[in-house]
C-alpha cells in the first residue's frame, strides 16, 4: 500500500512496511547508523539512527513507516544523542586508531570525523579485552568490538546458521566464532565478515593496511556523502 510520510517538513511517497531509514535513504536523506547493514535484518541496538518519529525518539532502522507519519531526522537534540553515543563507544572499548587495520574505512571513526569529535568527554575505560586467533583465516580483536551484532545476524547462506554468536551478559558480552563449523569457513567468508564489521574487530589474517592513506573509504568524503548526493527518487 502506498503511504505518505513527512520527513524534515517535506512529503514523500513510500510503501507501507518500508522502514523510516529506507525511505530517508531512498530520498537522499542521510541518517547515521552503525549496527544497520543492507541485507541484514535490522535490530536497533546501537541507537545512532534515533530520530523524532511522531514526536517520540525511535530508531529509524527498526520503525516501519505508516501513513501520515511525521519524522525529524536532524536537530540539535538528536545530533547530541548521536555524537554522545559515539563518544561512549570510543571510551568503552580500546580504539587505537593509528594501529588499526580498519582505520580510514571504519564506520565508528568515520562518524567521529563527521561529528568532528576532538576528544570524548568521558574518561577512557581501558577495559581488559583479548585479541583472539579465532580461525586460520580470522582474528577477532575484542578491544574494538562495539557489539553491533552485525556479524551475529549475518547469514551468508539464508538457510544455514550464522558464523558468530554472542556469549556472556552485560559488560562481559563478547562475540564468539562458531568453532564447531570451522572446517567450512574460508578466506572469502573471512573477507566478507571483515567487510561487514563496521570497526576493526574482525580481521582477515594476512590482510590489512593494503589500501594507501588517501584512498581509503572515508579519507576524502564524510560517511553518508554517497546518500546525500544521490539523485532524489
Amino acid at each position: 500500500m502506498s503511504i505518505l510520510i513527512t520527513i524534515n517538513g517535506r512529503e514523500y511517497g513510500a510503501e507501507s512496511g518500508q522502514s523510516v531509514l529506507e525511505i530517508a535513504t531512498d530520498n537522499g536523506i542521510y541518517i547515521p547508523t552503525l549496527c544497520n547493514y543492507e541485507g541484514i535484518k535490522p535490530q536497533g541496538c546501537c541507537r545512532v539512527c534515533t530520530c523524532l518519529i511522531n514526536g517520540r525518539k525511535m530508531t529509524a532502522c527498526t520503525t516501519p513507516a505508516t501513513d501520515k507519519m511525521v519524522v525529524e531526522t536532524n536537530n540539535q537534540d538528536l545530533e547530541w544523542i548521536r555524537s554522545t553515543i559515539i563518544e561512549l563507544l570510543f571510551v568503552e572499548g580500546n580504539h587505537f586508531c593509528p594501529a588499526c587495520e580498519k582505520s580510514g574505512s571504519c564506520e565508528l571513526q568515520a562518524l567521529a570525523y563527521r561529528y568532528r569529535m576532538m576528544a570524548p568527554q568521558f574518561p577512557y575505560s581501558f577495559s581488559a579485552r583479548d585479541v583472539e586467533p579465532a580461525h586460520g583465516t580470522l582474528l577477532i580483536d575484542h578491544n574494538r568490538c562495539i557489539l553491533c551484532k552485525r556479524c551475529v545476524r549475518w547469514r551468508p547462506e539464508p538457510e544455514a546458521p550464522g558464523w558468530f554468536v554472542f556469549v556472556n551478559r552485560g559488560h562481559e558480552t563478547r562475540i564468539k566464532f562458531v568453532h564447531e563449523r570451522a572446517a567450512d569457513f574460508n578466506k572469502s567468508l573471512a573477507q566478507a565478515a571483515m567487510n561487514i564489521c563496521p570497526v576493526g574487530a574482525i580481521i582477515r589474517r594476512g590482510k590489512g593496511y593494503d589500501v594507501p592513506i588517501g584512498r581509503r573509504k572515508y579519507d576524502k568524503l564524510p560517511i553518508g556523502s554517497d546518500i546525500e548526493t544521490k539523485e532524489r527518487s
Partner: peptide, 10 residues
C-alpha cells in the same frame, strides 16, 4: 587518548 603507549593500560 594515550596513544600507542597506552596499549599497556589494558
Amino acid at each position: 587518548m594515550g596513544g600507542l603507549p597506552a596499549m599497556r593500560n589494558n
